[in-house]
Design a protein around this nucleic acid. Structure first.
Lengths: 338, 338
DNA sequence: TTCTGGCACTCGTGACCTTTGAGTGCCAAG
DNA sequence: CTTGGCACTCAAAGGTCACGAGTGCCAGAA
């Protein structure tokens, strides 16, 4: 295995490269870090690290840059998570506390993350999958037209228009509303289908069609809206990517526009702990030169959604991870309060 | 004034420059267009055009490129709006017809515009300013907690939580709901405040506080949500901006992230007709090298919101304007149907 | 065995020069 | 007013060259 010092050399290389954006050589390393050995020794170590695939040379006579594998080792073994400073924490809390509704919380979170990490931020809306129903409302807009409003415990509201096969009386509607709510309020989305399945039978023949239609729409909403939405921000930070970035930035922007791609990306992250995907570890090609740092957040113990940042593989991992973790925590608190 | 032929030369310059992205010289012009005169003549015309400020030379011995003023003349006098082809129109309609709700309409419109124009698309959500109230719903979530749901004729739904000063009975709530709706349904937002102002008086002493609170929240929602929201897409098209674009793209991305800026931008456009703002005509500095093509759209005769694209000043104006106009029309149709 | 200093070698970078050619302005003649 | 001719300009492209950071390897010291 790699000796202690070689790991130290790798750490130094990553740190320097992240700072300078330039390949780092043996001499510069010994000057900037107290490794206690000569450049020649470092050269040997570097050769070994290169053999193992942790670093690489852009061209024969240049310094080394970390490979994806090198960053991986750095993140796993060499880097901690750098906690934010107290003023930073305070700023986060103040900024998030000003939010007025769910949309606003998400919007503020995106801005915050982008600003703190100086990278592209991605925040998923709290998921409906694990949510419970807070209320279902039915409004008669016309004799045969009902609006269905679904309110979740995460504060999200979804509405659907329902065209009924037959006119539906106000009393029947109130009846349906009452029974529906008594069955599903407080229950999880996933449980709703079986909870309402026998509901039409208890209505009069004439109304059954309409009841079924309404219920069908409700179930549809539950399924459909389990597809997550998300918000991104800080794309201007992409310009800090690199010098050659016309080629780099394009596929990233494209990937960011594909919500499906991003959702999959976040979905791959583990629920509980912070996940870092480096370069080619990302399935999507356009993101092969980026790293994704993501973590779940939620009002309680359970994560209801995820958030994270997308940046160049050459990023300040400890700092980024610290910011992501901190923001996730505070957002969780805010959600729990509301 | 400028002779007929000189205008023709300007048109040719704009067209060639938009196509090739390279300064265009007198010789190339005569070869690619049948102007019926020699390069020398064209040179004289170009000198005149340059004197008037319609074109400029990047460096002393290069071809000419149009100035903002040149584009302006081109758009005003020389260019028509290029209608879309029938297949294109059909594609638009098919794509938009698939939308399931307002969010979806807007999302699809953005994608469509971005794809058609290969530029950055901006679509404003239908405004609440000119909207009318379709329905107001009040839900008792807890004894002293009411959810207010506002449904507009444009299909938008806004909700607010209201914490009441005192518990509020279900009957009083139903009463308020009924009276409120009978007064405001079908009315314009701007008319609502005076329509409800004497409502608290007709309630019992105990409930007046709550009624006032609910009404205050309603009015607040009306005002607050008159702030428009918008959706942007096609940012990946920014990479087609130019060769030097690290410097160009940055401020544009930043401007695009500032919703306020964009809203102001769209707001400046006239309601009825298509507006083209070229380069420095845009107040925001970051957009000084871009042009904005915007137009209002709406379900009826009145425009309820605007949409448009942001692209380099060097853009295909006739084509872009055609696409923007067509999309706006079809979106209007879709909104009218729903 | 590990570290170190020395040394020859590599090769991308930047400075500097030259060439090339598209494009220009001007002028005198058609 | 148009045209062909002509001298001039200048960015872009290509070539040469010295520089220097960085490397690998080796022999000797620790």
């Amino acid at each position: 295995m790699l000796s202690e010092r070689r790991l130290e050399v790798l750490r130094a290389i990553v740190q320097d490269y992240v700072g300078t954006e330039e390949p780092v050589g043996s001499k510069a390393l010994t000057e900037r870090h107290r490794l206690g050995v000569s450049p020649a020794t470092v050269r040997n170590d570097m050769a070994a690290l290169e053999d193992e695939g942790f670093i690489a040379q852009p061209h024969t006579s240049a310094g080394r840059i970390p490979t994806d594998k090198g960053y991986r080792l750095f993140v796993d073994k060499l880097a901690g998570v750098k906690p934010l400073s107290t003023p930073e924490r305070r700023a986060i809390q103040n900024f998030l506390d000003g939010a007025v509704d769910l949309d606003d919380v998400v919007a503020r979170t995106v801005r915050l993350l982008a600003q703190l990490t100086r990278q592209v931020a991605v925040v998923q809306y709290p998921s409906l999958t694990r949510s419970t129903v807070r209320h279902v409302e039915l409004l008669a807009l016309a004799p045969a037209r009902v609006m269905l409003v679904l309110i979740t415990d995460t504060g999200r509201v979804e509405q659907r228009m329902v065209d009924c096969p037959a006119p539906f009386g106000e009393t029947a509607l109130a009846d349906l509303r009452a029974r529906l709510n008594s069955r599903v309020v407080g229950r999880r989305f996933t449980d709703v289908p079986q909870l309402v399945q026998d509901l039409p039978e208890s209505f009069e023949q004439d109304d059954r069609g309409t009841v079924s239609t309404v219920l069908a729409t409700l179930l549809e909403t539950l399924v459909e809206e389990t597809e997550e939405r998300l918000m991104i921000g800080g794309t201007a930070n992409l310009t800090r990517f690199g010098h050659d970035f016309p080629l780099t930035i394009r596929p990233v922007l494209e990937a960011l526009e594909e919500q499906v791609v991003l959702l999959k990306l976040l979905g791959e992250a583990k629920d509980s702990e912070m996940t870092v995907r480096i370069g080619h570890e990302n399935a999507h090609e356009g993101l092969n030169s980026t790293s994704v740092v993501a973590v779940g957040y939620g009002s309680g113990d359970e994560a209801v959604a995820k958030l994270g940042v997308v940046g160049p593989t050459r990023m300040d991992y400890p700092g980024t991870m610290g910011a992501v973790r901190a923001v996730a925590r505070y957002v969780g608190q805010i959600l729990a309060e509301s």
